[in-house]
Amino acid sequence: MKKEYWNKPTMGLWERLYIFEVIRGLCITGGVFFGNMWKWITFRKGALTAYYPEEIRSDYSPNNRGRHILTQRPNGEVQCVSCNMCATVCPAYCIEIQSTANFEDPFHPKAPDRFEIDYSRCIFCGFCVEACPEDAIRMSKDVPNLPGFDRTKMWAPQDLLMNWQPQRNPAKVYPSAQTSTQEVHP
């Protein structure tokens, strides 16, 4: 039985002759194509197509949630204390952190030695930024430029997250003086 469709095609004889309408369509697309090509040959920006990943739009909103930045302490070490709040809150389960201990520095005894984000899973929700108690993770407006064919290669390691090029906004504004008083027991 022939399937019933909700709309019936309303074609006159001209349309049903087919060939003339197809030629008309080809003229429209061809016109756009050659128009764009002419602009391109004469060094003007033609179509709206961006040649991703070589071309990235410059007009992202400053509020855009793009790639993550791990902020740094004044001495260049990572600000993150490896509390895993971001990894816990992340709805895409795409942050993985491995921690190290440094008991010589009682103010920063815990730090990540691997901090990796899986950009094949990240949904750019910004929850990680929201959850961080240390202002250690931020999102810049630029997109992470990680196109590829293999999702296992879309992990951004800690080094990259701390030093994306061009570097933007990596250093955390730090309170100048140590505000808490240290009483060391006799």
Binding site: F103, P106, P109, S180, T181, E183, V184, H185
Partner: peptide, 20 residues
């Protein structure tokens, strides 16, 4: 008042660390 600080990482033994 500011909090008292005590010594944070004391090695009680090979196995245990004590944060006073």
């Amino acid at each position: 008042e500011p909090k008292h600080h005590k010594k944070k990482f004391n090695y009680l033994s090979e196995r245990i660390v004590l944060d006073n």
